[in-house]
Amino acid sequence: MSDFIIHVTIMSGLYALLALSLNLQAGLGGLMNFGQIALFACGTYGAAIAFHFDFGAVSGFVLAVLAAALLGWAFASVGRNLQADYWGIVTLALAEVIRIIATNEDWLTGGAQGIGGIPPLYAGLDGQTRQLVILATVLLLVLAAGLFCRHLIGGRYGLSIKIMREEPQLAASLGYDTIALKRQLMAVSSVLAAVSGFLFAHYVSFVGPEQIDSSETFLIWAMIVVGGLGNNAGAIVGAFLLQFTFAFIPFVKDWIGLPSEYVAAGRLLLTGGGLIAFILFRQSGIVPERVGGRRYV
C-alpha cells in the first residue's frame, strides 16, 4: 500500500509541474493553451530519443528543454494575430500533429510501439529506497518550481504579463511588446513541462504516443481550474487532488461492487463533472488568484 501511495505522490508531483506550467500560461498570461501535452511530449521524447540514439541522459535533458522552449515559442508566434479562443484551437491542433508524427515516424520515435527500456532514475538504488529518493527529487522540484512561479507572478514581470492578459491595448500603449511577452512566457513555462516529461520518461522507462493524447491536456486543465486559475498553490493542490482521487477510484469501485470497466468511465466522469461543477459553482477554484500581492500593499 505504501509503495502505491509513493507512486501516486510521484505522479501527482509530475502533474503538479505540468499544472504549474499551464498555470503560468493560462492563469497568469491568459493564454488558452490546449496543447500543453505537446510540451510534455518534448520532455518524454527528448529522454527517449537520446536513449534510443545513445546520446546519454544529459543530452536528453538538453534536447528536451530546448525542444520544449522552441515549441512554446512557436506556439506563441503562431498565435500572434489570433484571438485567444482561436489560438486555443490552433494549439490543440498542433499538439495532435505532434502526436501523429510521434505515432508514425518509427525511425525516430519508435512509432506506435514507443521506446522502452529507458534507464530508470537512480538505478544504483533498489526497491523502496529508490522510490523514496525519486519522490524526494520530484517534491523538491515541485517546491522549486512553485517558488520560481511565485517569484515570476509576484514581481514586476508578472504585473506586465497581467496587464497584457487583461488589457492588451493598454499594455501596448505603455510600451509593452505583447507578442514578445507571450513568447517569453510560453518558452519559460514550456521548460517546466519538459522537465516533468523528462522525469516521467525515466520514471516509467517507457515513452509512447498514447501518453500524449489530447485528453491529457484537459486533465491538466481540470487540475488548474479545480485548484484555482492564476494561483500556484492552486495548481499544485489541483494536481494532487485529482491524481489521488483517480488513484482511489478502483478501491471505491470494489467497495461499491462495480465491474472494473467502470474505472476509466469514473475517471472521465470525475474530470468532466469536476470541471463543470467548479466552472458553475466556484470559478475561482479551491485557492483563488490573489489580487493585490503583499508587495504592493
Partner: peptide
C-alpha cells in the same frame, strides 16, 4: 482597466522600461 489588478499593482506594472 484590468479587473484582477489593483490600482497600485497596475501603476507598478505600467513602467515598461526595464520591466
Amino acid at each position: 482597466m484590468p479587473r484582477r489588478m489593483t490600482v497600485a499593482e497596475l501603476l507598478h506594472g505600467a513602467a515598461a522600461r526595464g520591466a
